[in-house]
């Protein structure tokens, strides 16, 4: 059986965990490791501070934003914005999970730290409806601007699963009453 790698030898992962606890202390919740990832949870309001420190601290030096994603934990729970970071100094991916309130889904943008976060944030806004305050370009990116739903949320059920889901009426091709056929008159030329 091929092991992918002697991933994050305990000493090294341990040093990252120790550094993180030193730097962020009380901010960290649920600090954990798996085979090649170190992860922790923070409060959504503190994301800029933590990410700036992670990027600029010479010991941590997480200079690259590998991924930024949103997760919906259900109607009675919260959203989560997940950042995956990379650093040469540590042999593990760092996953920072920031909680966002579901009733008021707002979080600070990180486009001033990594410009490349802009498209990620536009996608999350389009798919999940999370508003990134300060993002200069928060438009829908995939769906058209007059689209009114957030397809990646958990309460958006695919049309053939539930007739009364928000998605049931989403495919306008299924609704002939919205078609505009006036320009064809009675069909004669």
């Amino acid at each position: 059986m091929g092991r992918r790698r002697a991933l994050s030898t305990p000493a090294l992962a341990g040093s990252l965990v120790r550094l993180l606890t030193e730097r962020f202390g009380s901010d960290l919740r649920d600090l954990g490791t798996d085979e090649d990832t170190v992860e922790f949870t923070i409060d959504g309001a503190r994301n800029i501070e933590v990410l700036t420190a992670l990027r600029d601290d010479p010991d941590l030096d997480f200079f690259m934003l590998a991924d930024e994603a949103a997760v919906d934990y259900g109607l009675d729970a919260h959203f989560e914005v997940v950042y995956h970071l990379f650093s040469w100094k540590h042999p593990a991916w760092l996953r920072v999970r920031a909680r966002v309130d579901r009733s008021d889904p707002r979080i600070e943008t990180i486009t001033h730290l990594w410009e490349g976060a802009s498209f990620h944030e536009r996608e999350m806004y389009d798919m999940m409806g999370i508003v990134f305050t300060g993002n200069r370009d928060l438009r829908r990116i995939y769906m058209s601007p007059d689209y009114r739903s957030f397809p990646q949320r958990r309460d958006f059920v695919l049309p053939d699963d539930a007739a009364d889901s928000p998605a049931a009426g989403v495919n306008p091709l299924e609704r002939p009453e919205t078609w505009d056929l006036s320009r064809f008159g009675d069909g004669s030329r």
């Binding site: 058209s144 007059d146 306008p172 919205t178 505009d180 056929l181």
Partner: peptide
């Protein structure tokens, strides 16, 4: 038969380019 003879077609619906 020409395209128009084949019956009415839709040209716009929600989700179109804006």
């Amino acid at each position: 038969r020409t395209y128009v003879d084949r019956g009415p077609q839709r040209t716009h619906w929600e989700g179109d380019v804006r």
